[in-house]
């Protein structure tokens, strides 16, 4: 419907996914993954699936980031590869 908004969201989504895969710092990877989840939630809300967007924003952007940071606090912060 608002095609330029959806196009911008898609571009940022792909950018966030690529950055989350290539970055070395684990905390930065988790942060970009959270941004990815939030952009996906915005896209779902634009498509009319508000129910799914609510779940994605609460779980993907909220709880998952905190749980991943809690898991990485027990590991090395930088990945070897």
């Amino acid at each position: 419907m608002i095609w330029w908004l959806e196009l911008g969201f898609f571009g940022l989504l792909i950018l966030a996914a690529v950055v989350a895969l290539t970055v070395r710092d684990m905390i930065a990877a988790v942060a970009t993954l959270t941004a990815y989840s939030f952009l996906a939630a915005g896209l779902l809300a634009l498509m009319g699936a508000v129910d799914v967007a609510l779940t994605e924003a609460a779980l993907g952007a909220g709880i998952t980031g905190v749980l991943l940071v809690g898991a990485f606090s027990r590991l090395d912060r930088r990945t070897p590869d």
């Binding site: 609510l54 609460a58 779980l59």
Partner: peptide, 14 residues
């Protein structure tokens, strides 16, 4: 309206 038990649970847990 949009929402339900699972979404509300995730929000309160957050």
């Amino acid at each position: 309206s949009p929402g339900g038990g699972f979404q509300a649970g995730a929000i309160v847990a957050a």
